[in-house]
Amino acid sequence: MAAGGDHGSPDSYRSPLASRYASPEMCFVFSDRYKFRTWRQLWLWLAEAEQTLGLPITDEQIQEMKSNLENIDFKMAAEEEKRLRHDVMAHVHTFGHCCPKAAGIIHLGATSCYVGDNTDLIILRNALDLLLPKLARVISRLADFAKERASLPTLGFTHFQPAQLTTVGKRCCLWIQDLCMDLQNLKRVRDDLRFRGVKGTTGTQASFLQLFEGDDHKVEQLDKMVTEKAGFKRAFIITGQTYTRKVDIEVLSVLASLGASVHKICTDIRLLANLKEMEEPFEKQQIGSSAMPYKRNPMRSERCCSLARHLMTLVMDPLQTASVQWFERTLDDSANRRICLAEAFLTADTILNTLQNISEGLVVYPKVIERRIRQELPFMATENIIMAMVKAGGSRQDCHEKIRVLSQQAASVVKQEGGDNDLIERIQVDAYFSPIHSQLDHLLDPSSFTGRASQQVQRFLEEEVYPLLKPYESVMKVKAELCL
C-alpha cells in the first residue's frame, strides 16, 4: 500500500493539533497551500530580480507567473513527485505547466533550498508574528487579574506546605514575570531571523556568478533584492546548502521555554482548584465526569500541561538535527523538520489560546482563602504575639514557653481530632496574655502579614508589564474561544 493518505478522510490519521486544537490561522501558515504558494512567490521574486539585473526574462513571463501564483494543481504535483521522487522539481514542473512561456526560467540558477529553506524562514517569521500578540493578550488578562487582587491576602506555599502570606495578585505576578520573559525572547528570536537568500547549491553562489558572467556586484544585488522582497532586513552571508540548523534550535528553545512557563502556571491553577481557592472557567453544560456528576475538573489547565510537556520535548529534535548536518548538509534534517517545526508552533498556539481562555474567566473564592488563612495564621502570628507581650512588660522566655504549650495543644486538636485551630481562643482565655487581649485582632490582621506584596504588584505592572504590552494595544480586544 502506498504511503500517505487522504487526510480529510475519517479513515486516515490526522494530527489532533490540526484537527482538534490549533487555530485556523496557525494551521494555514503550515498548510501545503501556504507552503507551495510561497515557493511560487519566491520563484517570481527571483525572476523579477534577475530581470532587473539584466537576464533575458520578459515582462510577459513575469506576468504569467504572477497570474498563476494561486493556480496550484495539487493532484498534478503529487503525481509528479511520485514520478520524480523530488518535491521541488515536482512543483517546478507543475508551475511550468500553467506558465508555459515562463517554464524555462522558473528556478533559474537556484537549488531546492532556495524555495525550501527560504519558505521555512518566512513561515517561522509569520508563525512567530501570530504567537506574539496571543502571548501579549494572556499577559494582559493576567495583569488585569493581578491588579484587581493585588491586596487580597492568601496563604503562600513553599514545598506545598503553608508559608508566609502573600497576595493573590502577587502570586499571579510570578506567572506574568515568566511570560514577559517569554514574550521578550519570542520577539528577540523573531527579529534575529535572517533570510537564507540566493546562495546556490553549497552556499557559494557559483551558479549565479556564472549567470551574471562573473559580476560579483550583481550577485550581491540579486541576494539583497530577493531578501528585501521577502520582507527581511538581512540575509546570511555564510550558508551551506541550507541555512544553519542552529536557527531551528533557537526558535524551538524559546517555544519550549514558553511551554515550561505555561505548565507551571496551569499546575498552580490545578492545585488551587483542589484547594477550592480558584477555578478555571466551567461552562453551564460542561460535564466533569461521566460517573461523578459533582466533579469540576480543571480540564483546560490539564490540557495545557499535557501539550506543554510535548512542546518542551520537541527542542531535542533540532538539537540532534543540527549535530548531524555533515559538511554542507545531509538530508537527516528533512523529514524531522517537516514534523517538529509545525508541531512546535501548533502546540504553542494551542496552549496560548487555551491559557487566554482560562485567564479571561478565572474565578476566585475569597471566603475559602480566608478560612485557610484562619487555619494557619495563628501559628504564624506567634512571633508577633511574643513581641507584643514583651512590649507590655512580659518575659520573652516565659511567653515563648506559654505559646509553645498552647500551640501544641491547638495542633493536637487540628491533627488528632480534625478540629479547627483554636490557638487564639486559648490565648484569649489565658490570664497571662490579658495585657494584649485587646491587640489580638490587630495582630491577626492578614494584611499585616503580606509585606509589600501589593506595592510590588503595582510597581511591576507599571514599570515592566504595561510598557512591554504597549506595541500590542491594537490587538488586545480579541477574545479566545474554545470549541473543545
Rank of each mutant, 00 (worst) to 15 (best):
G4L: 14
S9D: 12
P10K: 15
S12T: 09
S15F: 14
P16V: 14
L17W: 14
S19C: 14
A22Y: 10
P24W: 08
E25L: 13
S31W: 03
D32F: 11
D32N: 14
R33T: 08
R33K: 11
R33N: 04
Y34P: 01
Y34C: 09
K35D: 01
F36I: 15
T38L: 07
Q41E: 11
Q41A: 08
L42Y: 02
L42M: 15
L44P: 00
W45Y: 13
L46N: 07
A47E: 00
A47H: 04
A49P: 00
L53T: 09
T58M: 10
T58V: 13
D59W: 08
E60Y: 10
I62D: 02
Q63K: 10
Q63D: 04
K66Q: 14
S67W: 10
S67G: 09
N68K: 11
N68E: 14
L69K: 09
N71F: 10
I72G: 06
F74L: 14
M76S: 12
A77W: 06
R83I: 10
L84V: 05
H91T: 04
V92Q: 00
T94S: 11
H97V: 15
A102L: 07
I105P: 03
I106A: 07
I106Y: 02
Y114N: 01
V115M: 08
I122Y: 11
I123R: 06
L124F: 06
L124V: 14
L124W: 12
A127K: 00
L130N: 09
L131Y: 06
K134R: 10
I139V: 12
I139D: 03
S140I: 13
R141V: 15
A143W: 00
A146L: 01
S151N: 11
L152V: 08
P153I: 10
P153Q: 00
P153C: 13
T158I: 00
H159M: 03
F160K: 06
T166Q: 09
T166E: 02
T166C: 08
V168I: 09
V168F: 05
C180P: 01
M181A: 10
V189F: 14
V189P: 06
D192A: 15
F195L: 10
F195T: 06
G197A: 14
G200F: 04
T201Q: 02
T204E: 01
T204K: 00
T204P: 00
Q205D: 02
D215A: 13
H217S: 14
E220V: 11
L222R: 00
D223N: 10
V226E: 02
T227V: 07
T227F: 10
T227R: 06
K229D: 03
A230S: 08
F232S: 03
A235G: 12
A235Q: 13
A235P: 14
I237Q: 08
I237F: 08
G240P: 06
Q241I: 00
Y243I: 09
T244I: 04
R245S: 01
I249A: 11
I249W: 03
L252Y: 05
L252H: 09
V254D: 08
V254F: 05
A256F: 02
G259Q: 00
A260T: 01
S261P: 04
K264S: 05
T267G: 13
R270L: 00
L271V: 07
L271F: 05
E277H: 04
P281E: 12
P281R: 11
F282C: 05
E283A: 14
Q285V: 15
Q286T: 02
I287S: 06
P293D: 02
P293W: 02
N297A: 01
P298V: 03
S301T: 10
E302Q: 02
R309T: 07
V315M: 12
V315R: 05
M316R: 04
M316I: 11
D317H: 03
P318R: 01
Q320R: 03
W326H: 15
E328F: 00
E328C: 06
R329Q: 00
T330V: 08
L331D: 01
S334I: 02
A335P: 08
R338D: 00
I339K: 08
E343Q: 13
A344W: 01
F345E: 01
T347G: 11
A348Y: 04
T350N: 13
T350Y: 12
I351W: 01
L352A: 10
Q356A: 15
E360I: 06
K367G: 08
K367V: 02
E370I: 13
R372L: 02
P378Y: 03
F379D: 03
F379H: 07
N384L: 11
N384C: 11
I386C: 09
M389S: 07
V390T: 07
G394T: 10
D398T: 12
I403R: 01
V405D: 15
V405E: 14
L406K: 12
Q408D: 10
Q409H: 08
S412R: 12
S412Y: 13
V413K: 10
V414Y: 04
N421F: 04
Q428R: 13
Q428G: 11
D430A: 13
F433K: 03
S434P: 05
P435A: 10
H437F: 06
H442F: 15
P446V: 04
G451I: 05
A453N: 15
A453T: 10
Q456E: 02
Q456F: 04
R459T: 11
E462P: 06
Y466W: 13
Y472M: 11
M476H: 15
V478K: 15
